[in-house]
């Protein structure tokens, strides 16, 4: 286990370095810079600004300066939010995004997995079809439309839940549902097929012949074995949650990290973009490592390559 973790860290470091480098240069390729504004500033002022942020140096020099800082754990400064460091900005936004993401993942599991089990046990019937359609509804509409619909129905029409903002636990419900819509469908589909698969196994049949109640069989044997593919999928799911977070955070006015992908890129806030990307990449890698460890615990027979 510890070997696995050490190995992961060893792979992670060059990967993060590659990501930082790639993003650094890709961003500089973009036309436009952080100091272009609707009201064009005089060249003298631009010169002052560039000097202040070391942007008058050559690109390799800037890259060197950046790397030096990152190694020390300093992700740089924001050009848009003056006088604020990227560490500072991300430190206040990350917990919010994590809360939202975990809430959504939780929702996806408690809705998607039961739907999948029911569909599998009633395979081929109308109930199966209903379950699959229900879970697919969530991935059949763009998330901004789902968000708008949820706000309209629950926030404005029924007045059951807060429309937006980030104040209490109630405020988490609608955004978490919006964010969970995609992963739920994914999980339901996966659970269904792995439970069907497991149910057709000999030992499940044996258990049934022995007179074990059907539901107990499903839970004790089929679901347990079906857990492995479900857990595998948690890694890619976190990626979906991350991509979805921008839309959801914007619609529900949530002060999370997702929105920096768009706003910071369009502001050409270089360091903030790289910082956000690095943190998200780190989260993904951690999620995948946890998945691998769970995998290992659930089924020690599986040896983990890389």
């Amino acid at each position: 286990m510890s070997k696995l973790i050490i190995k992961r860290i060893l792979i992670m470091l060059p990967l993060l370095w590659l990501i930082a480098t790639l993003t650094f240069f890709l961003l500089r390729v973009l036309p436009g810079g952080p100091f272009d504004a609707e009201k064009n500033l005089p060249p003298e002022i631009i010169a002052n600004l560039k000097a202040k942020y070391h942007m008058d140096r050559t690109l390799p020099e800037q890259y060197y300066i950046y790397l030096q800082r990152v190694v020390k754990g300093d992700l740089g400064i924001s050009y848009k939010y003056l006088d604020r460091s990227v560490n500072d900005i991300l430190a206040s936004a990350l917990p919010v995004s994590l809360t939202l993401g975990i809430a959504a993942l939780f929702l996806a599991i408690i809705i998607g997995v039961p739907l999948g089990i029911v569909a599998a046990t009633k395979k081929g019937t109308a109930i199966d079809a209903m379950c699959i359609i229900c879970s697919t509804l969530g991935v059949s509409l763009p998330s901004f439309v789902i968000g708008a619909l949820l706000i309209f129905v629950f926030g404005i029409w029924l007045k059951l839940l807060p429309v937006a903002l980030w104040e209490s636990a109630w405020h988490v419900i609608l955004p978490a549902f919006t964010l969970a819509s995609g992963p739920t469908a994914y999980l339901a589909r996966l659970t269904r097929s792995s439970v069907i698969d497991a149910l057709s196994k000999d030992w499940v049949r044996t258990a049934q012949i022995k007179g074990e109640p059907y539901l107990q069989t499903v839970i004790n044997h089929a679901l347990r074995n079906a857990l492995i593919p479900i857990i595998t999928v948690l890694g890619p799911l976190s990626a979906i949650l991350i991509t979805g977070s921008f839309v959801v955070e914007t619609i529900y006015a949530i002060p999370g990290m997702g929105r920096f992908f768009i706003t910071a890129v369009s502001n050409r806030d270089y360091d903030l973009v790289i910082g956000t990307t690095l943190i998200f990449a780190l989260l993904l890698i951690i999620a995948n490592t946890i998945v691998d460890i769970l995998y290992h615990i659930l089924d020690p027979r599986i040896t983990i390559s890389d």
Binding site: A148, I151, F152, G155, I156, K159, V163, A164, L165, T250, I251, Y252, A253, P255, R259
Partner: peptide
């Protein structure tokens, strides 16, 4: 002073007296 980027969200908050 809230910072709500999306127009329709802010508008819904107004309609809900927030």
């Amino acid at each position: 002073m809230f910072m709500i980027p999306e127009q329709s969200t802010a508008f819904a908050l107004y309609e809900n007296n927030q």
